[in-house]
Design a binder for these strands. Sequence first.
DNA 1: TTGTAGGCGTTATCAT
DNA 2: ATGATAACGCCTACAA
Lengths: 334, 334
Amino acid sequence: MPVTIKDIAQAAGVSPSTVSRALSDHPRISAGTKERVRRLARDMGYTPSILARGLVTRHTATIGVAITTVSDPFLAPLVRGIEAIAHENGYSVFLGNVHRDRERELQVVQSFYERWVSGIIVAGSQIDEGYLDLRDRFPLPIVLFNCRTYPYSVSTDNLIGACQAVAHLVQLGHRRIAYIANQYSYRANLDRLTGYRRVLEESGTSMDPNLVTEGDGTIKSGLKAAGELLALSQPPTAFFCFNDMTAMGVINALRRAGLQVPRDKSVVGFDDLDLARYYNPPLTTVRQPTHQLGQRAIRMLLDLIQGRDDLQPEILPAELVVRETTGPAPTLAQ
Amino acid sequence: MPVTIKDIAQAAGVSPSTVSRALSDHPRISAGTKERVRRLARDMGYTPSILARGLVTRHTATIGVAITTVSDPFLAPLVRGIEAIAHENGYSVFLGNVHRDRERELQVVQSFYERWVSGIIVAGSQIDEGYLDLRDRFPLPIVLFNCRTYPYSVSTDNLIGACQAVAHLVQLGHRRIAYIANQYSYRANLDRLTGYRRVLEESGTSMDPNLVTEGDGTIKSGLKAAGELLALSQPPTAFFCFNDMTAMGVINALRRAGLQVPRDKSVVGFDDLDLARYYNPPLTTVRQPTHQLGQRAIRMLLDLIQGRDDLQPEILPAELVVRETTGPAPTLAQ
DNA sequence: TTGTAGGCGTTATCAT
DNA sequence: ATGATAACGCCTACAA
């Protein structure tokens, strides 16, 4: 039903290959027919079939991006970074929702692969370096975030970022500092936990394992974790959270418990979402270079697509942003 | 390089068509060869090419969803609703980022069309009923949200929702009620504005055009709009916001101005995002049946794909959710 | 400069 | 029950 190259050929009185050449700017074609064919194509409403084209050229000019879930605010600048560079290079970008589920992630990657995308970027993978074992099942370039054990990965410096955050709290006099983790971000979580531990050790503070608690990166989990931590016989005076969402949940829990931030408790997030500066109170947090992360990832992917494989994992710096959720530790007297 | 149906045929000592039949559960094939071929396919790591298949069957089992931007929190349940039903019916769902730009929206729809997706859902269209004119350029099913003037559309009852919100404020004694609009959601915005106007008129309140101001649905725009409204000689005592994000911006502005919510000013949002109940204070807002919106849209799209065209625009009910950002209007004495 | 022929991976229509 | 054959829409040698 839709108009094909043959239809144009017939209308123009030339062969299909001539049409193809006219449309694809082939060098050896007369300016006249080229112009005529192009006008005809436009007038007839011709749209090339990327299916057919991809089948023969083995190039679909498509990038698949697997994301944990739409509306993860962390993703916006990251995806924008990807898109900007992808479009510059003539690629379309499509997103697939994974919902932090390993099975779904495999399905999404598979459905990208079945459609012959040129390459895949996975944000928030539940598989991580497992992709090394999936190379023969999915023989196409795949780039990850925050997985230093995988050769094609772009990360934030989670370790240093965490160190900055916790050092900031220590400097404010806090000694009982909680860490609320994220079980779904295995690698990033590990690095942040390491940073947390390191600073506490270096500051000579005794580590209390009760202060490290599991979360899942959502507001709700921050709320729940904070509730549990507050119920301890010796509750923390400060909360270092895996991300800003968790931090918002914590602040909410504190508010419900009648506590004020930062007077009674301090909270530090991670990410520096757009929302962070507009939360109430504005969040102290560790900024990730999200837009850059996206750009580096797509550059790496394009390199891989072009056949390079001498690439190194990249690590971008994090930066502490002090706002209004951190303050001096309450004195013991209180 | 990847293994094709021919490779399997060769390995199994049968013809390609037999392999195709074995894999697609064709009725006329012996159980033996079917089993043998299937095992071989699995062992050899065969993945069907949806490009090739789609080319001949004209069916790619793919739904394209155009969204304004990843990380619009409003979209999460909506997309989940779409995915749930789509997957049940054997379709894959891919998202394309439009960034509220008309040109980009056309590009995304075009790139879906070039890839022969079975149908398209557009959330937050900048084109709306303009798709009627694009029917010959994109001859495939397209479903929209919140566009009653387009035949294939699913909407929230924005009018009634707005009425509920404003009536709630009026009941609390508010007379100077601002409306902060969203220029990018043309249709939805129009209906909400109408509801706002109607309730004010019915309550005998004189409409002050200065209290209706343009926004773009972001926190930042809420912040800005509230700042301007507060600078009026007679500032409003209540803010009805196009959405929750705007409301959060407003609350932020109020906080910066040293005002308390809901003691000094009342704020109502729209959407009832997950975040709304966790904001500080928890938002009074109008709930949209987001998940259902998605489900209805995909059902409508699947109907269209199957050739039905006797469909009607659908309108789902909205519901006021009263939380902690609305209270009695301050007395004039204050 | 243009046309012809072959093929990309798959399914569908005929035969057998 | 299985095998040839053609076709989907497009590109690309090769030939003219």
